[in-house]
Design a protein around this nucleic acid. Structure first.
Lengths: 268, 268
DNA sequence: AAAATTCTTTGATGTAAATCAAACGACTGC
DNA sequence: GCAGTCGTTTGATTTACATCAAAGAATTTT
């Protein structure tokens, strides 16, 4: 389903110099803040759009996406309470979504990368219920939800696609509930690393090494543990020769051991 | 938005004799296993269908629901791996949804009551990824998803409704992540009780007393804690005069204290 | 009605992870 | 190039909850 980019498949998949492992589109990166864009010639199409459109339908599909928007590292794409107008397809960059409790505790609810859709939380109440923060400079396609709904009525394949995206998010959150409710620190970290590398690999990056875009604290928030425990678990995996960690750089040495830890802690 | 049933508003809202607090529809309950039903004369309509339909549209809406299905206590509406064909609107009864990890650990992902929609997990992969188990004898409307999608294309208000239902589920799971990732046992139980009573109240039941349909173990699984901790927390709340608990019967004496515990543990 | 099973409560003890604390490394801005 | 900030690592200690255990209710089966 996902077409990998061959140029990313030759080993040197993560740019360590610029500390950048997001998918860079081929076109120039000097576009203004918001510009009109088209899905029909987007190289991320396979990831965020349904397949099997003929060219003329594709042209209509371009109507979904109105503009593009840049979000600088640390800035928000949207915040809790903002009126909901659009879904966003990530072109480049990396986001976290998070919610805050009354007394200020933060819960990271997800990390999103190129080709993933963000903003579904806003549909139910017409207002966003979480914050979407760019963890690196990002570029998103703004898809006004009214357009999405209108074209969904016309194209059953798009309608189905939207439903699948929402269902996928529900299923993902189900498995996070399993993680948070039932698993121990090592299992959570193993699951986290495996999921991350799998998604990066689907985007043409290495299946063994990558750069973390988030802090230990953000990983901990996502996984329901403290940053010290995240750090200690990384160190333990490193001591055991399962992974190599150096700050944000991670290399998975023994993916099978990681999978085993994730599936069941076969005693300690 | 939700019309409460006046007959349920006179204090005696929970039938302690039969240990039953689900909404009983007015029609006779001797229907065969699956029969043709209509939304247009269903008294749960306000809960599971969008409002603002005129009578002729309503008739078309009836096409969504194909049949009704009975599920006995302990039986499954669907299981992990089952082909996905339909969404289910609960008419009466109470369900839990749960997933199991490789090594058999169970995670309850939700409890669902009358008027709520179940089965959204199946859309993404055309197969269900969780089990839906009836915690009491239940009666559901079977809504073939193909019908839902077809009519959604015709009626924007239905389309929007379906999107909202899915978004609501995403937002609900977000708040469960906050619960599991950041909150302590007492906060989790407080949140659980408040959520349950709020939903029951919206269905015409008392806002202070109700009968739990699930075991301590199932509550614990949902909230990421062991059954003993659930029991101890109930006992503590009872000792503190916040609630009255006797087995499955619960009465909330001090809802404000419960809300305070939920919002922030104001020291211990 | 007795027996068996399931669920719940409560107590005693153990432990994984949190908290507290301090040092160190990396990046930022002047 | 240096100071300041931020993020990470590691150690020592505490703690909330899990685990182990057993008795007591409630429900189901025979």
């Amino acid at each position: 389903m996902v077409q990998v980019i061959s140029s990313n498949e030759d080993g040197k998949t993560v740019c360590l110099e610029c500390n950048h492992n997001s998918w860079q589109p081929m076109d120039q990166r000097t576009t203004p803040e918001t510009i009109k864009v088209a899905c029909s010639n987007c190289n991320l199409r396979e990831l965020c759009m349904p397949i099997g459109f003929n060219p003329e339908d594709m042209q209509k599909l371009d109507e979904v996406v109105a503009t593009r928007r840049r979000v600088k590292q640390g800035e928000r794409l949207f915040s809790n309470g903002d009126p909901f107008t659009s879904l966003y397809a990530i072109r480049t960059g990396f986001f976290k979504t998070c919610i805050s409790s009354e007394d200020g505790r933060e819960q990271v609810t997800g990390f999103q990368m190129a080709g993933e859709i963000i903003g579904l939380d806003g549909i139910v109440s017409d207002h966003h219920s979480c914050n979407a923060v760019a963890l690196e400079d990002a570029d998103v396609c703004v898809m006004p939800f009214a357009n999405v709904e209108e074209l969904s009525r016309e194209f059953p394949v798009l309608q189905r696609h939207v439903h699948k995206i929402m269902s996928r998010e529900i299923v993902r959150e189900n498995s996070i509930m399993m993680l948070l409710g039932n698993m121990r620190a090592e299992e959570r970290i193993a699951a986290f690393l495996l999921n991350l590398v799998q998604r990066l690999h689907a985007r043409g990056f290495s299946q063994s090494e990558f750069i973390l875009r988030m802090t230990r604290e953000e990983i901990g928030s996502y996984l329901g543990m403290k940053l010290e425990t995240v750090s200690r678990t990384f160190s333990k995996f490193s001591d055991d020769g399962i992974i190599e960690v150096k700050q944000r750089y991670v290399r998975i040495i023994e993916p099978d051991v990681l999978k085993k830890i994730f599936n069941s802690q076969t005693c300690s």
